[in-house]
């Protein structure tokens, strides 16, 4: 059992009559950035929701830091960024962060450092409704970082961001992992794969590969992750 990471064992989730996750077994270790890649609709968000403990599970187990996912003791140790930015549109950036900071019980100084982390310091007093889509998802990301979580679950956090900022954010994710956190990031853009320490490829609710990017390329003989994915899918068919 993983004391400082996430262990998912034989996890099956049925949503609205469809089997969305089918017998998924997976580990997300601390100190690494684990990428979850797969086409839209393959079950990435659902898998992340089970890790955070907000998804009803049909069978199997999800264990975080040795405890069942969703248990009360874990709630202050996990940072979660949902796919759609979940912040208050009618509050300013700073008001959003200050609210979540007092819910988490972290000092107000964290608000400033998290704003700097996502490069939004100069937008602190702007109402969220008047931000661009990318800026809004950065506010959502800043909220997830407030509590200095040991597990960070990020559902497609870099969608719609410009390349420079995307690079910055990936550096931030690695810095958090270097500090000992388990970072779990999903994406449907295959070219982000090389930025991960480990890759989990998913298709139609199943894990089809789980390895380092270079090992994946070596085993499939492909030039990039996208072709490796296609090779694996072709091999499975």
């Amino acid at each position: 059992m993983m004391k400082n990471g996430v262990a998912i064992d034989a996890l099956t989730v049925v949503r609205g009559g469809n089997t969305v996750l089918d017998d998924v077994t997976l580990e997300i270790p601390a100190g690494q950035v684990t990428g979850l890649l797969g086409p839209s609709g393959c079950g990435k968000s659902t898998l992340m929701r089970t890790v955070v403990g907000v998804q009803r599970i049909t069978s199997g187990t999800v264990t975080v830091f040795g405890e069942a996912a969703g248990s009360a003791a874990l709630r202050s140790r996990i940072g979660y960024v949902t796919q759609a930015p979940s912040v208050y549109d009618d509050l300013t950036v700073a008001e959003n962060l200050e609210f979540f900071a007092s819910v988490l019980g972290v000092p107000k100084a964290r608000v400033d450092s998290c704003l700097a982390l996502v490069d939004l310091t100069s937008y602190a007093d702007r109402v969220v409704a008047r931000l661009s889509g990318g800026q809004r998802s950065r506010v959502s990301l800043a909220v997830a970082l407030l509590g200095e979580p040991q597990l960070i679950v990020l559902d497609e956090p870099t969608v719609g961001l410009d390349p420079v900022l995307r690079q910055d954010l990936w550096q931030t994710f690695h810095r958090l992992a270097d500090d000992g956190a388990a970072v779990f990031v999903s994406s449907h853009v295959m070219d982000e794969a090389n930025r991960c320490d480990r890759l989990v490829l998913m298709r139609e609710g199943r894990v089809i590969a789980d390895d380092t990017p270079s090992a994946l390329l070596a085993s499939t003989g492909a030039d990039d992750i996208e072709s490796a994915f296609l090779d694996l899918v072709g091999g499975a068919a």
């Binding site: 955070v52 403990g53 907000v54 009360a72 709630r75 202050s76 996990i78 979660y80 949902t82 759609a84 930015p85 979940s86 912040v87 208050y88 549109d89 979540f100 819910v103 988490l104 019980g105 909220v143 509590g147």
Partner: peptide, 13 residues
């Protein structure tokens, strides 16, 4: 619907 409730319930609230 905005997901803020889901986020709050995943926090120690």
């Amino acid at each position: 619907t905005s997901g803020t409730l889901e986020r709050l319930l995943a926090m120690p609230m």
